[in-house]
């Protein structure tokens, strides 16, 4: 079991999403729980977050957020950190990316 990690969460607004951002978020949360990773998802603008997770519905990734203030993991459509990632692997790979940045 790792120590508590505060993850700021930001969605894009989903005007024409390629992925269901809420569904992806729930999958990530569930997988983190199962892996014993103590992630606390907080509003993106709450102070003291260890990492920012942005989940955008498509690769345009237009969600507004602070630039380069903390480490980021970016899901944008079927991409993870700007690289293609299939829908099936998205939640698992995102969790791996979060762990690698901590």
């Amino acid at each position: 079991m790792t120590s508590l990690i505060k993850v700021g969460l930001k969605f894009c607004g989903s005007c024409n999403p390629h992925i269901q951002v809420g569904q992806i978020y729930r999958e990530i949360k569930e997988k983190a729980l199962r892996a014993g990773l103590d992630l606390r998802f907080r509003p993106w603008d709450e102070p003291g977050c260890d990492l920012l997770l942005v989940i955008s519905g498509c690769p345009a990734d237009c969600a507004e957020r602070p630039v380069h203030t903390i480490r980021e993991v970016i899901v944008a459509g079927e991409t993870l950190n700007r690289k293609p990632c299939s829908r099936e692997r998205l939640a698992k790979e995102t969790l791996t990316s979060i762990e690698s940045k901590l």
Partner: peptide
């Protein structure tokens, strides 16, 4: 709703 607040 956090999912939509960026637009709303």
């Amino acid at each position: 709703d956090p999912e939509f607040e960026d637009l709303l």
